[in-house]
C-alpha cells in the first residue's frame, strides 16, 4: 500500500534521511520509534510530500508521488495526517473543521458532510462540542477532533506524527484509545510515537530509526524483548 524505496532527504547540506526502504501492507499498523533527530517525523512527512524529497521514491497505491506528473492532491485525499500540534483551523467551529475538506475538495453536499461530521464526532466522543471553537477545547479533545477531521476524507491510510507528544499526561489515554479503535477497524496506519506501551500493544510491526536510517524492524514483542542492534538496545534501555 505504501512503498518507500531509497528515500533520501537533505535540508541544505544536512542529510536527514539516508536511504529508507519500507513497505506497508494494507491494514497494517507500523509504529516508528527512535531518538529525536533520527528523522522519523521527516520520514512520515515525506509520505504525503509535506517535505520535498531529495532522492528515492515513495509509492502510494502504486502512484509514485516523487513523479512530477502525479497529482499529489488526489493522493493526499487518500492519506490522512494527524499532527503533533493538532493544527485545527481556529477560525472555524469543530464541525466546520471536519466538514471543510469534504465540502471543498470532494464537493460533498452540505447535509451529507454535516451528518458525516456528527457521526465522526460521536466516534471520538465529542458530539457535544460540534459548535465549539478549537480554542475552547483541551489538548486531548483537539487531537480527537483532528483525527475526526482527517477521517472525514475517508482516507485509506492514516499518518500520525507524534500525536500525543504535546498533550498533558492525563490526556494521552483518550487519544490513544481512538487510534486503537481505528487499528481494530483495520485502518492502514503509520504512527510516529514515543509511547512504547502503545507501540507494543497496537503495532503490527515496529521500526526503529536512528541517524536517518532504519536500524531495525520487527514484530513489537521481538524488538522490545530481543533487540538485535546495539543502538536499539541503547535506545530501549533509556525509554523503557
Amino acid at each position: 500500500m505504501i512503498k518507500v524505496a531509497n528515500l533520501q532527504k537533505s535540508f541544505g547540506s544536512h542529510k536527514v534521511l539516508n536511504g529508507i526502504n519500507v513497505e506497508v501492507q494494507p491494514q497494517e499498523v507500523v509504529v516508528v520509534i527512535g531518538p529525536s533527530g533520527s528523522g522519523k517525523s521527516t520520514f512520515l512527512r515525506c509520505i504525503n510530500l509535506l517535505e520535498t524529497i531529495t532522492d528515492g521514491h515513495v509509492l502510494i497505491e502504486d502512484i509514485d508521488i516523487t513523479d512530477k506528473g502525479s497529482d499529489i492532491n488526489k493522493v493526499r485525499e487518500e492519506v490522512g495526517m494527524v499532527f503533533q500540534h493538532f493544527n485545527l483551523f481556529p477560525h472555524k467551529t469543530v464541525l466546520e473543521n471536519i466538514m471543510l475538506a469534504p465540502r471543498k475538495v470532494r464537493g460533498v453536499p452540505e447535509q451529507q458532510a454535516r451528518a458525516k461530521g456528527m457521526e465522526l464526532l460521536k466516534k471520538v466522543g465529542l458530539e457535544d462540542k460540534a459548535e465549539a471553537y478549537p480554542d475552547s477545547l483541551s489538548g486531548g479533545q483537539k487531537q480527537r477532533v483532528a483525527i475526526a477531521r482527517a477521517l472525514a476524507m475517508e482516507p485509506k491510510i492514516m499518518l500520525f506524527d507524534e500525536p500525543t507528544s504535546a498533550l498533558d499526561p492525563e490526556m494521552v489515554g483518550e487519544v490513544l484509545e481512538v487510534i486503537k479503535q481505528l487499528a481494530r477497524e483495520g485502518m492502514t496506519m503509520v504512527v510516529v510515537t514515543h509511547e512504547m506501551g502503545f507501540a507494543r500493544e497496537v503495532g503490527d510491526r515496529v521500526i526503529f530509526m536512528d541517524g536517518g536510517l532504519v536500524v531495525e524492524e520487527n514484530k513489537p514483542d521481538e524488538i522490545f524483548e530481543n533487540p538485535q542492534h546495539e543502538r536499539t538496545k541503547a535506545f530501549l534501555s533509556k525509554v523503557l
Binding site: L50, N73, V79, G80, A146
Partner: peptide, 22 residues
C-alpha cells in the same frame, strides 16, 4: 502558523484552496 497550510494541504486542498479557506 505553517501547520495551518500543512493541515489544509494534507487534507487534499490545493494551495489556492488552502489560502482561500484557511
Amino acid at each position: 502558523d505553517r501547520g495551518q497550510m500543512e493541515a489544509a494541504r494534507s487534507l487534499g486542498m490545493t494551495h489556492v484552496q488552502a489560502m482561500r479557506y484557511v
